[in-house]
Design a protein around this nucleic acid. Sequence first.
DNA 1: CTGAGATCCTGGGGGC
DNA 2: TGCCCCCAGGATCTCA
Length: 271
Amino acid sequence: MPELPEVETIARGLANALTGKTVAAVTVTMAKIAIAPPGETFAAALAGETIAAVGRRGKYVVFQLASGRRLAVHLRMTGRLIVHPLGYSEPYPYTHVMLVFTDGTRLSFADVRQFGRMRLLAAGDPWDADGGVEPLSEGFTREAFLSMLDGRRTPIKAFLLDQSRIAGIGNIYACEALWEAGIRPSRPSHRISRPARRRLHGAIRDVLHRSIEARGTSVDDYVDAEGLKGGFQNQLAVYGRLGEPCPRCGKPIVRTVIGQRGTWWCRGCQK
DNA sequence: CTGAGATCCTGGGGGC
DNA sequence: TGCCCCCAGGATCTCA
């Protein structure tokens, strides 16, 4: 499932491939996926727009359009944004929206489970105003993170997944960061010591940086804008590794459920 | 404010 | 081998 490193990788690929191109036509074959401002049709509103830039906000891919509008895309679990290789004009399997640019370039939004959404935003729409801090930004200071946990009784794993606090961390990187910091996922956030909080702050940034470097984690369906898999699945310490030895202490990795989410961790070295 | 639970979907895994 | 059942999983909404 695409989390911050995967979305970052996709956005960079899309920026390379699409910046400066103008949308000629849009095909929407599943209406619920493509959301436009009230009174407008997604396809008609997007046609004629030029891609000024492509970036990321939390787990959203954000296309900045020349008109000042933005196109925000959330891939949820199985969504894909893929730029077609030269000459490939067929929609990919499970394509629900396809953009054709004036130079013939094609972009498919494909999604097996139909959970993803593409939302065209009016200029200045503050849709992400209440979103959490970007964990790789300067605003995510150690001190800010330390105080974020004060008074929060929720398990630290659930806290890390709350997009309104920190934006972009999903199940994979929550598990990995907690392992790296040596913290038990079920521990109430406010009961984590100051040294452990510092370790976790560093671990979050470290694991996200390392995964971006590896172009993301492909454990399920994730591929980048070129359709290529990432490499960070080879560096995972705990996620999806039930019964395998902990890379740090050798005890078998266990799986529990926290906040209705599968959670992989080591009883030996996460306290 | 906070957390729990339902909801949306389908491929694939487990059970028989 | 084949078939049926069930469930993961992120965000959003409702409810307590």
